[in-house]
Design a protein around this nucleic acid. Structure first.
Lengths: 117, 117
DNA sequence: CTCTTGTGCTAGTGCAAATAGAACAATAGA
DNA sequence: TCTATTGTTCTATTTGCACTAGCACAAGAG
């Protein structure tokens, strides 16, 4: 479970963190029952504030991806397995967008637009 | 050419504006040679500052979607036509994500992750 | 020549991300 | 039961960015 963070990115760090976990879940690298490192631990290894990590964890909990409890930490839920259905469709779309020369932000913006419709 | 803006959204207004234009370009509603309303004009009709509209226009210019020049305004480029290639793949992925219960922000985050890889 | 339109600049306001520190509550494990 | 671990909650501060505002300027159209 490798987590990389870019503090300079315009994407909030807590979002990057959550994205990383979702990514691993969609790849099967993280499976239901797996336990994420404790917030304090992860915060230290990433040189980031604890609150930032916790915010990411709470976001994932709101999405039903992890179970969060004091003393036990963050555990991947069974629901996370359903994310793997997107593990194929996403790379396909991204490579297609790359081929046409569409930037990340443009692509995500178009998806937001489609989602709202 | 209908442009709607949600000032309360967490997505910046200038991003929403650009997204709207991209969306129309991908649908063929906007074709190469078409001219967008002037920044001052659009700003007034949307009750938004001129700079906000101009920022969106400049973003689209950086993406090569419009040609921008004083006295002439913003004109859709031929390159915009290539966006229509995504006009089918995007709705497919979005509906798939909806079916699995993946939120917009989660989906876009996963795409950013895939793009970076 | 004149109007229109984008460019560039400075300045101020409001909101959200991120940091920091502390007290608290639930859980696991010895 | 006792203890260490871990998430929860709170307040406070700093920082960056979106947005607004007003102005002077330059390029193009007619």
């Amino acid at each position: 479970m490798l987590i990389r963070i870019d503090p300079a990115s315009s994407v909030p760090m807590f979002e990057q963190l959550a994205a990383s976990v979702r990514f691993d879940a969609s790849r099967g690298t993280l499976r239901p029952g797996d336990r994420l490192p404790s917030a304090r631990e992860l915060a230290e290894s990433l040189d980031v504030n604890v609150h930032t990590v916790l915010r990411a964890y709470q976001l994932l909990r709101d999405e039903g991806l992890v179970d969060l409890r004091p003393g036990r930490g963050a555990v991947i839920t069974v629901r996370a397995a359903s994310f793997s259905d997107l593990g194929e469709a996403i790379p396909r779309l991204v490579s297609q967008a790359r081929a046409v020369g569409v930037s990340v932000s443009a692509l995500t913006a178009m998806i937001r637009q489609e989602y709202a419709a």
